[in-house]
Design a protein around this nucleic acid. Structure first.
Lengths: 331, 331
DNA sequence: CTTGCGCATGAAATCGATTTCTGAGACTCT
DNA sequence: AGAGTCTCAGAAATCGATTTCATGCGCAAG
């Protein structure tokens, strides 16, 4: 691989001049041209490792997410990548499996690789960002909060839970259950809170028995749905607080012959790769791509030196009511 | 951030000794202990950028894939990550959107970041690996081949296409179509080849009109399925050569009231997050995770200096015939 | 005509680790 | 006892870029 010294020798200038040509400093036209020609003929590209060592900051940002197989996070990753790309950054994707130990390790690596910054979906509300904050490395958290005072981008969770529940009541369902994520994840608590307040104001039943806590994956949704259907007073509709649990719930309902609209289903998040007819499910579409682009925009402004106090940006979900649910009234 | 010099000063030794302690060279017990204590009290972690610059190789491998939102590739990524992790490597995930320009850029970055190696799912059969090969940087291609003589891990594609087609014939379908990926992707050609040879040996019709070429995404599957259903002699079954096109085909079938087993569906690849009853679809499960772990194993052995000629590892898919298809005979 | 400023440029320091080189001391073997 | 061999540890070179410092030149102002 050609180095800056090779280019300098071929162009008959000093390495400093070569560096200046590529970093927009003042160099006379003829020399600049000689350098560019030499660089081209050697197909020179600067060694990023050396640059990073000297500059103390690379052009890489880390995106740390809990589950690379969850389409919500891959869509987020797309947003992050698109925006990062356009600002000249590469993205390193790290998967924590919701494990705080793995998360801590990746944060450590981000530091020791001199990465420019981190976009983090925290594994839990007790994630430790002190390493980053102590180093003054920019961090933006996404979707879930931590105890640290850093920039944050989130969904308007409580209204999302409330609106999907309200929509199911509107469609005529009377006993609406909820499958929520683990209590260590704020997002899940808030969405379930939206469900609860709607049930308490519009439902004629006690909400408590109809709230099931599950992990955020398909199997969690399956288990919770099965439990709900086995209740003495089984619900006639369910709200899942994330996409994969929604899939799990639908699988169990399908196995028991209870497909929508016979049984109402609301999901917060998109249903990835569904083969169901559109309009059977009430959905709150989440602005995953925007979540990613917004996070990177905030991160880049910090990298560029912004010093204002930590900001929180809240993005709304968009409700799509099931169109076929109304036919239920005809039953 | 504490450096090796800080640790050396605190422990009263030279930086070289500190380095030796962390790299398993011979250091006397008392000094080693002093260094370890000093490192712990300063919470020292070696700067990976400096290490990479000196060693000319980082502990990072790049995984370059065409579509981060396709579950096939995220499952592959899991395999890659798991195996890399256990060998002490981090994984950088790069998304090409099947764009050779983006791919070339990422390969360039891999070089200039001194990455240890690359696991690549080529965007097309004309991907240019000369930069990597010229530098002597290890590359393993996965799933799709290139013109370069490098290690390769692939699926046994032709038998996959043949077995799923055969299974649909066995179930009683008589006119089986195929939705295949673009011709620039060898995988798609081979799988479609398996379908064709089976049709030619067992079917009583001309295969040509029943082969549709689509992109590898859901919308491609939808368009192709719609075209197939509009044929004068419409098929009664279809084989999709990848997962997402299978989803698209199922969506269209569902919209037209043609759900399996009324219409036979075979898919090469898993159906991610499906809410369909299991056993309705004939599937060839692909060993995605193994694909990833195998690729990294091969890559790591190259990084460690293996010099034997390029190897190709072929992993088989596993057929799961639709269990309910047989009931069709009773119609 | 001289002082001074600015600009282009090269020499050299720097980032933080690893690794080679070198020397000091301990030990073995004859 | 002297030569040869090992082991351990520090000094210094090294990786390849960026950036500070120093210098020489040209041009303008006094």
């Amino acid at each position: 691989m050609a180095t800056i010294y090779d280019v300098a020798a071929l162009a008959g200038v000093s390495p400093a001049t070569v560096s200046r040509v590529f970093n927009g400093r003042t160099v006379s036209d003829d020399r600049a041209q000689r350098v560019r020609d030499a660089a081209a003929s050697l197909s020179f590209t600067p060694n990023r490792t050396a640059r990073t060592l000297r500059r103390q900051s690379s052009e890489v940002i880390a995106l740390i997410i809990p589950d690379i197989q969850n389409p919500f996070f891959t869509a987020l990753a797309r947003g992050v990548e698109d925006r990062a790309q356009s600002s000249g950054y590469s993205v390193v994707l790290c998967n924590t499996d919701d494990d705080p130990v793995k998360e801590a390790r990746y944060l450590q690596i981000a530091i020791s690789e001199n990465m420019a910054g981190v976009v983090l979906v925290p594994a839990s509300d007790s994630s430790d960002l002190s390493i980053m904050v102590g180093q003054g490395r920019p961090v933006v958290t996404v979707d879930r909060t931590t105890a640290f005072d850093v920039d944050h981008v989130m969904i308007d969770n409580r209204p999302a839970g409330a609106s999907v529940t309200g929509s199911l009541f509107d469609a005529g369902y009377t006993r609406i259950a909820c499958i929520a994520g683990p209590e260590s994840v704020v997002t899940a608590i808030e969405r379930a809170g939206g469900w609860r307040e709607t049930v308490e104001s519009r439902g004629a039943y006690d909400a408590d028995p109809y709230l099931k806590i599950a992990n955020h994956r398909v199997d969690g949704g399956r288990a919770a749905m099965a439990e709900l259907l086995d209740l003495p007073d089984a619900p006639d509709a369910v709200v899942a607080t994330n996409n994969l649990m929604g899939v799990g719930a639908l699988q169990v309902l399908n196995e028991r012959g209870l497909t929508p609209p016979a049984f109402g289903v609301g999901v917060i998040g998109g249903l990835p790769f569904t083969t169901l007819s559109p309009g059977l499910i009430t959905l709150v579409h989440l602005p995953t791509h925007d979540l990613g682009t917004t996070a990177v925009s905030m991160l880049v402004s910090r990298i560029d030196g912004a010093t204002e106090p930590a900001r929180t940006v809240v993005l709304p979900g968009v409700l799509t009511a099931a169109t076929t649910a109304a036919t239920r009234d005809a039953d």
